[in-house]
Design a protein around this nucleic acid. Sequence first.
DNA 1: ATTGTGGCCTGCCCGC
DNA 2: TGCGGGCAGGCCACAA
Length: 260
Amino acid sequence: MPELIEVESYRQAADRVVGRTVRAVVAPDAWFLKGGATPSVVTAAVERRTVVGTGRRGKLMWLDLDDGVQLGLRFGMTGRIVVDGFGPIDALEYGPSRQDPAWDRFGLEFVRGGRLVLSDPRRLGGVELDPDLSRLGPEASTVTRKELTVALGSSSAPLKAALLDQSRLAGVGNLIADETLWRAGMDPARPAGGLDADDVAALARTLRSTVRLLTRRGGSHTGDLQEQRHRSGTCPRCGEPLERRTVGGRTTYSCPAEQG
DNA sequence: ATTGTGGCCTGCCCGC
DNA sequence: TGCGGGCAGGCCACAA
């Protein structure tokens, strides 16, 4: 699913449309528009505007328009971006591998040709004008020890739940969370606020290095733990059967021997 | 305020 | 072969 790694590749793909002027907004699915927006409102705000830049924080990306409006794009679990017919990612983990125009939930057509399309079979993503960036925590791929200390605070919530909370830390989804905690040797269910300073520093380092590694390998689904994410999976390091449970409301795999 | 839960959405896979 | 239930998880509303 699109975690920050995939969304960053979407943002880079969207860089192709910087400098282009929007000829038409295609919004066939009003439900996909969030924050009270309607097709006519989005059309009025975006048509005839020129894209002057792109940005991303966590799993949210946006297009900067020349009137200062930001067009926010969210991808949920199965959302993909296609620019001029090409998508940086062909098939998402847990998503269908085929294409279907019926899944095009939103699009921009440009004056001199070309288009940007958001395809999302399960409709868990969305489009929003001027998304509230202040609701997002610091970017996970570059998180510092100090930022993570603040993010975890003295919370009694499970450590994994804190990592998944986009207002604490932006960009981590279920797969990066499990892979990172496995690499750090930390129990996903331990209280987030229970880490000492050394633990927090180690976790911040592991977060950054895990995102870097998975980016190099090609996505959030390329972790070592991922191939054992099934009911009879074993720890890739020690061979112990993995534990499968729900933590933070999400299916969680961990090694009971190494992540105590 | 913080934490936990359920529901949204729908394609796909498994077992009957 | 067709069918139905369960599953996947990002995000949000809501409850305690």
